[in-house]
Amino acid sequence: MKLIIYITIILSLCGIHISHAINDAGNINEISIEAHIEQLYIELENTKAQYQEKYTLISVALSEATQGIKESITTDQKLYWLLEKDQLKEERERLELSELSDLSKIRYIKGLQIIKILYEKTLALDHHFASVSTFREINKIANPNNYPEFKNIKETIGVKADKKKGFNLTNILGNNIYASVAHSFISLFNNEATSRTQKEESLKDVECILDFTLRMHNDLNTIYFETVFLQKSNENIMGELQQLFIDFTKPIKYRISLKECRNSDDWDNVRDHLDTYLEALNTALADDSKRYKAHKMQINLEFPIDRLLQFITQYNAFIDQGAKFYEKFGIMLNSYENETQCASQIPVEYKKLKESIAVAIEKFNTAYKPVEINGSKMKEVLYGLNEYD
């Protein structure tokens, strides 16, 4: 039964399901993470139950041996029961080591699976941040100098400007949103060659553009810079995750990085290294003279799990932070009060940005947030902790 459990979990690590549920295209249907963890939880509980049955049998036998010692009449009888009791205690100790080993193996393999899943999430986040934090697009919709209508007015004003009274801005100030708008207003109002009607028409052509960019300029820049900050934080998370993978696979002597493993789909090789390690552990467990070696090998499987739990806390904190940032972005983008009135002149990029932020908020609360690795059940799955014990 234990062999079946090991094979089942190891195959799940590489995305191969025992049911071989293959669709018409030949791809394996993936179960949800929640279902995967629930199945693993059941496997752990079944393993514990199987060992509990063996503990019960040993406990009954120990009680019989104790009673036999008390009721022994001859020395030979007492010696028999004493030896029987010692053997049962040694058997119980071996059983405890075997149970810890089996549970550690299952948790270790699940830890690898979680690392794999979290890496995919951080890659998706990195792609998202890169798409949102494109400065060229943000700058395009935040600066009126990038709108053809405003450029036309500036050119018209320049042609009709009084050469004696007028002046031109430097390149630096000419690209500054506030200096450029102020200069254009001053030049337009002081231009005697343009009638009042023409001035009002010119303003009407760009009123929505100026209103939008002047109101939203700071908010759009805030979204850009804070998204860059989140992207850098996500890069740090990815670095931590890659280091965690190195620490995690060090005991089984797998030396390839997480990035390379993922890109080359090398999970079968990870499985092979793990199989080799488990064979050595089983050999050590069966030999009383190698009891210390087996204990050390088991600790080497347990220790990376502790690191994984620490990383999960760090990852969740980052996702919570990102969700709050994006909720703020959503409020900023929805704060433009003249959106309906100026709908025809608001750039398409602004609407796309709003849609992207709305989708991101939803993903931060679902796809990116690893809900399945929170709570007491996940702690028990990974670390054997049960708050009700």
Rank of each mutant, 00 (worst) to 15 (best):
Tyr388Thr: 11
Glu240Pro: 00
Asn263Arg: 12
Glu90Lys: 11
Lys116Leu: 04
Arg107Leu: 05
Asp320Gln: 08
Leu169Tyr: 09
Ser356Cys: 04
Asp24Asn: 07
Leu309Arg: 14
His183Trp: 15
His295Pro: 00
Leu44Ala: 07
Asn316Gly: 01
Ser184Asp: 10
Glu149Thr: 03
Asp265Arg: 09
Leu82Asn: 08
Leu169Gly: 05
Arg262Trp: 01
Ser202Thr: 03
Ala284Met: 04
Asn191Thr: 02
Phe303Asp: 08
Leu118Val: 05
Val270Ser: 02
Val270Tyr: 01
Ser104Arg: 09
Glu38Ser: 14
His36Glu: 15
Arg215Pro: 00
Arg255Asn: 06
Met1Gln: 10
Asp389Arg: 10
Leu103Lys: 10
Ala323Lys: 14
Thr8Asp: 14
Phe245Leu: 05
His36Met: 13
Pro148Thr: 01
Lys105Gln: 11
Gln314Gly: 03
Ile5Gln: 07
Ser264Asp: 13
Asp211Tyr: 09
Ile157Leu: 15
Lys2Asn: 14
Asn300Trp: 02
Asn29Asp: 14
Glu192Cys: 02
Gln50Phe: 13
Leu3Ala: 12
Phe329Ser: 05
Gln113Ala: 11
Glu302Leu: 06
Glu302Val: 08
Val381Leu: 15
Arg307Met: 08
Met216Tyr: 13
Met1Val: 06
Glu349Ser: 11
Ala182Gln: 13
Tyr315Trp: 04
Ala317Gln: 09
Leu244Pro: 06
Ile157Asp: 08
Gln198Asp: 15
Lys151Glu: 06
Phe135Leu: 10
Phe318Met: 01
Glu137Thr: 08
Ile237Cys: 01
Gly158Gln: 09
Pro304Asn: 06
Leu88Thr: 01
Gly15Tyr: 03
Gly375Ile: 08
Asp265Pro: 00
Leu203Ser: 03
Tyr315Asn: 02
Glu43Trp: 13
Thr276Arg: 12
Gln341Tyr: 13
Glu362Ile: 05
Phe129Ser: 03
Phe189Tyr: 10
Asn365Val: 00
Ile31Pro: 10
Leu112His: 02
Trp81Lys: 02
Tyr6Met: 03
Glu201Asp: 10
Gln243Ile: 02
Ala179Glu: 05
Phe364Gly: 00
